[in-house]
Amino acid sequence: MSDTKTAASGPDVRGTLVRASGNTNVQLGAICILVLVAMTAMRPTMFLSSYNFESMAFFMPELGILAIAMMIAMLTGGIDLSIIGVANLAGITAGTVFGWVAGEAGAGSLGVAPVVLGVGIGLLVGVLAGLINGLLISGLRITPILATLGTGQVFIGLCLVLTGGPAIVGFPDPWTWLGNGKIAAIPVPLILFVIVCIGLSLLLSRTSFGLRLKLIGTNPKASLFAGIERGRMIVWSYMLTGGLAAMAGILLSARTNAAKSDYGASYLLQAVLIAVLGGTNPAGGRGNVLGVALAVISLTLLSSGFQMMRVSNHLIDFVWGAFLIVVIALNSLRRGRGK
């Protein structure tokens, strides 16, 4: 690791970005508490109700997992604009398979075994989609933006081809349990989200895989001299991103009991925003799961508060976009001061 440090302190601009992530996370935690207090003060009875927290716990994991997927792609200095396409394709493929398996009886009657198969197929679709992205990016050396912009369209197009346009509705009961069920009063999606967070946090901070991934983003040249197989690492990282996006798609279709080619289109910007807000550097090298998790919690609190105050959805779009720009501007100013 001494190699990394010398490289990072060199003239490479990205190198100066390596900072302690703890500081940002303390700030994010403070933002969370601030939003919580502010919303409670404005709408005490509605905001603090257990119903409100429960609905947030069902809604947040999809977005959180998508943001983590985006963070993984950003670690190597890339971006994945196809995550929404992958997510919908996973849900739709599973739904189509359920339709075939159940035939006339209707997919709603299917048991646990076909649903396990469906989850497997959905995740496989995601990993394969990620493999395609990774091969295009590392093999053909297409820039991640254009490669995933193109594949994202292909995936959404395939969703349209599979469904013909309308939504697939009526998933099997065990499938909808994934999105709406509870284990000991804790929502299943929240449990899955926590598992994903812990698993990826360990993967990124405690394994050589995670360190190598960050090194590629921090300093590509140093990572080459350190003997890291860049191409293979990038393919793995996009497969991971694709798998996570598929997981988010499974949760989305399970919660709404439907899958459609254009669900969750606004999640793309929000996933980028949450990843950047959570301390991920879009130029690569820096990002941590805890930061992304805190960012998604604070934004979910904020958006739930906006909805209670009956702010129009369009103005929420405005706030998201403005927030993204302010956050990157502040990060950039801080970076400038650090030099």
Binding site: V276, P282, L315, D317, G321, L324, I325
Partner: peptide, 25 residues
């Protein structure tokens, strides 16, 4: 230019801001 930020992310943000303002305002 000022913040030396990746154009993709900046324009994603401004697109959302402008669409939100047009539709909401």
């Amino acid at each position: 230019h000022k913040f030396n930020m990746i154009p993709l992310i900046v324009t994603l943000g401004t697109a959302s801001v402008v669409r939100g303002l047009v539709l909401g305002g």
